[in-house]
Simulated assay, not measured.
Amino acid sequence: MDNENRWKYDQVAISLIDEAEMNANEMTGEDFAALCDNIGKSGLSSVPCCYKKQDGRFVMISGHHRLRACKKLRYSKIGILYCDEDELTKDEIIAIQLSHNSLHGEDNRNILKKLFEQIQTIEFKKFAHINIDEITPVDTNGIDISVMKETFTFSIILYPNSFDALDSLFGDIREQAKKSDIVLIADHEPNEEMLLKLQKEIGDQFNIKTPAICFSKLLDLAKERLTEIQKDNDLGNSES
C-alpha cells in the first residue's frame, strides 16, 4: 500500500468527529484558553488527524485539544487529514497518536529569541504564546544575563563519600556526560547544604526565581571576588 497517498484531506462536519477513548496528551486550562484565542484569531492552521469508520464517522488520532477548541468556538466544520479505518492497524493508530504527542523537537532559544523579536505588535507577541522569561536577557538589580550565540550544558553531581556508592556514581557520570558538555563532581556532604544556601540567599538578594539563573549569578559573583583577590595580591606584590 502506498503510505503517502492513503492520507486524504477533507472538510467535515464537526459533529461527525469523535475523540479517541484514551489520549495521553494533557493541556492546562491556561494553555487551552490560549489555544482557543489563537484559533479564534487565525483559524485552524494545523489540521487534526483522524481515521474514518465504515459508518461514516471519524475518530480522532491526534488533535483532541484543537477539536475541543473548535467546538467551543462553535465551528460547524473543520479540515482534517484521515485514513480509512481498514488502512490502519490498531497498533499503528496508537503509535501515530503517541508519536504526534511526543515528536515535537526542542526550540533553539537563540533562533526563537530572534524570531520573537521580529514580531512588531503586542497582540501577536501574545498570540505566539512564548514564555518571555526563557528567551530574553534578565536585568535585575545589576544582573545582565544575555542569551549567547553559542551555548553549552553542564551538570553538577554531588556524590556521597562512600565506596558503596561508586557504581552508582560512575553510572551517573556516564549518563550526564552523554547530555552535558561539562560535568562537575563534588563531595555532597560539605557542598550540598552550602550550595543550596547560597542559591537561596542569591535568589532572595537579587529577586531571582530560577535556580539556573541563581547558579549563574553565583559564578558571576565568584568571578568578581577572584578578580578582587588577584588585584589585592598584585597591589601587595608591587608595594613589597
Rank of each mutant, 00 (worst) to 15 (best):
L112D: 04
K72W: 03
D107I: 05
V147T: 10
I96Q: 15
L198F: 08
R174S: 12
K200A: 03
S162E: 05
R74S: 06
D18K: 06
R74C: 00
C49W: 08
E201G: 14
N101M: 00
K209N: 14
L218M: 09
R57K: 10
E30T: 13
Q11R: 12
E123S: 01
K52D: 04
G171K: 13
D204K: 15
A20R: 00
F154I: 02
I93Q: 03
D187L: 06
E19T: 09
H65K: 03
H104S: 15
L115A: 08
F32N: 06
D18A: 01
Y75L: 00
N5A: 04
D10I: 14
D107W: 07
Q118I: 00
I111C: 00
S155A: 13
K53V: 02
N5V: 12
M148R: 12
A186V: 13
E92M: 09
L219S: 09
W7T: 12
K197F: 07
Q118R: 13
D55I: 15
G63Y: 02
V59M: 11
I111D: 06
L221A: 04
T89C: 14
G203L: 10
I61N: 00
V47L: 10
S168P: 08
L198V: 09
N233Y: 03
A24G: 13
K71R: 15
D2G: 08
S15I: 01
G236I: 15
Q205N: 14
L218F: 11
H64S: 00
L88D: 03
S76C: 08
L88K: 11
I80W: 14
Y75M: 11
